[in-house]
Simulated scan of single mutants.
Amino acid sequence: MRTAGAATGEHHASTPGAGAQGPGVGGVRVVGRRLGALGRAELALLGRNRGVVFTALAVPLLLPFSARPAIDQLDLRKQGLTIGTTLLTAAIGFSFLFAVYTSLVNAYVARREELVLKRLRTGELSDAEILTGTALPALGIGLAQALVLCAGSAALLHTGAPRAPYLILPGLLAGYLVSAALAALTASFTRTVESGQVTALPLMFLSMVGSGITFPTEVMPEKLAAVCELLPLSPAIRLFRGGWTGQLSTGEVLGALATALAWLFLAVFAVRRRFRWEPRR
């Protein structure tokens, strides 16, 4: 498996104008314009795939309610939880998985196989800008979905206001960024868009069962919960749920943030080393 740099050779270092703007505000504006243009183009492509759009928008809203009968059997009050906060956290977790992770696996693989990524690399965009710009629509959908879910849950599920609101944003950012990075990593060893439905399953299954999405880790045996808290999306779920319940100590918050940053660093490092820009034929 070739590394990112080996796929097409030294393509950015000699590109005229790639570093002409230099550091500073001007350079940031140029990067912002590039990302905006790429994000708009990706959003247009995403809008043409109705199946992906439906999955990203509808599944996070519907799946938590399908799991409600099982959740109702849990002793949530003993753990300081309510059905409202549990369903809301489940919906946010499904948003991580469906609005961002699976949709981006499909997007990265499709753009690679269509030679879109390869053509983008011949221009002034850096590898990081290409991957980030491609991810922007999915990340935007996920964050917008989170706002709607929080507002809707407060009105319909009587979740009330979050007791530690300062943990909500870090939890959401951790979940969406880790999901996007892992999507790029999954795409690196996914041959086709169709096979992406299979390569994405391990992370999805582990996250649904072990990260506290379908069942809160608080109701698990202590030793099992300690292991599950190390899964990629567990820190984000823990921070988000803790934002509503206010039950996380400072040490637990720092531990969750450290675990999320570790997964993000590892995923980005692996993507830089292993992401494939050439079609897998």
Rank of each mutant, 00 (worst) to 15 (best):
L131M: 09
G242Y: 01
L74D: 08
G22H: 04
P202Y: 05
V268W: 04
T122N: 13
A184G: 07
A90M: 07
V268S: 03
L264M: 00
A58Y: 02
I92L: 04
N106P: 08
E113I: 10
A155G: 00
V53K: 09
S211N: 01
P23Q: 15
S66K: 07
F54R: 14
G26Y: 08
R33D: 14
R121Y: 05
G9W: 07
G152M: 00
R241Q: 10
L182F: 12
A154K: 08
A262V: 08
A135H: 08
A181T: 02
A110R: 15
L81S: 03
A180P: 09
A180M: 11
R48C: 11
Q79L: 08
D75W: 11
T3V: 01
I168H: 01
Q145G: 12
A270P: 00
G84S: 01
M204Q: 15
V59P: 06
V219A: 12
A151M: 01
T89L: 02
L74T: 07
S249A: 09
F54Q: 03
D72E: 15
A200I: 05
I130Q: 10
E278A: 13
P162K: 05
F96E: 05
P60L: 04
G93V: 02
E10M: 12
G175D: 04
T214S: 11
G212W: 03
L224H: 10
L97R: 04
T132M: 13
G26V: 11
V28K: 15
R281W: 14
T214A: 15
P170G: 05
E278I: 13
G93A: 06
N106F: 13
F269M: 05
T199L: 03
P16Q: 08
V193Q: 13
T250V: 09
L201I: 13
P279L: 07
A258S: 10
F54S: 12
P165I: 00
L81M: 07
Y176T: 01
R77N: 12
L57F: 09
D75P: 10
E124V: 15
G36H: 07
L233V: 06
G255W: 00
V100A: 11
G39N: 08
L266F: 11
L239S: 03
R281V: 14
V52K: 09
R163C: 07
A258T: 05
L57D: 09
R77A: 15
M1I: 05
H158R: 14
A58I: 09
F269K: 07
A128S: 15
A151P: 01
G47K: 11
E114L: 14
C150E: 09
E124F: 13
A146S: 07
F189D: 02
G160R: 08
R2Y: 08
L81C: 01
A154F: 10
P64V: 02
